[in-house]
Amino acid sequence: MIQALTFYVFAFFTVVSGALVISARNPVHSVLFLILAFFSSAGLFVLMGAEFLAMILVVVYVGAVAVLFLFVVMMLDINFVELRQGFLQYLPAGVMIGLVLLVELVVIVAGHAMAPEAGTTVAQPIPPVDEISNTQALGELFYTHYIYLFQAAGLILLVAMIGAIVLTHRKRDGVRKQRISDQINRRAEDSVEVVKVETGKGI
């Protein structure tokens, strides 16, 4: 009973805030509704027993992605009213894309019903939830079974970082950088002068 109630509450908030993301006039409000949608769907994940995914959703999407959106929306001066003007004009194309996505979803979901043997061919079957928590199952996949690929992916990211720095980092003249040693070595005698000022005359 309580589980069903919680589900409906989370599901209601997810759908409503999802609708508000695209209908809100103020883009900042849109992003805030997006965050609410993320939180509600995290709640749905917890109900499904996927607690790791729920936490990742909150940490990564709410903590990083949505905040990034917020920064971008606040920093860029975009006239959203102007952007919305062609809305009706693009509606048919949008509906078409939506329909295609819907059909694809149905095919995926119905695929398991049409070919039940598809589930048996996967290389790594999903472990039962009551035997092993999904955090541990994911951890074993990442850090034990696929440790080689995990490390290799790390190296690829390192190369990407080196590449970005190599290709764009330049030494510029006229940039004033903080030089801590110079700051510490500076002495009061070199820079401060005590001047005797006669009363009423000024300097």
Binding site: A152, V159, A160
Partner: peptide
């Protein structure tokens, strides 16, 4: 197939950068 792709990508990514090294 996965380790093939990962190795290939590590190699290619480094090569893209080296190709435009004289920036």
């Amino acid at each position: 197939l996965i380790s093939l792709y990962v190795g290939l990508e590590l190699q290619s990514l480094s090569l893209y950068v080296i190709a435009s090294f004289q920036r």
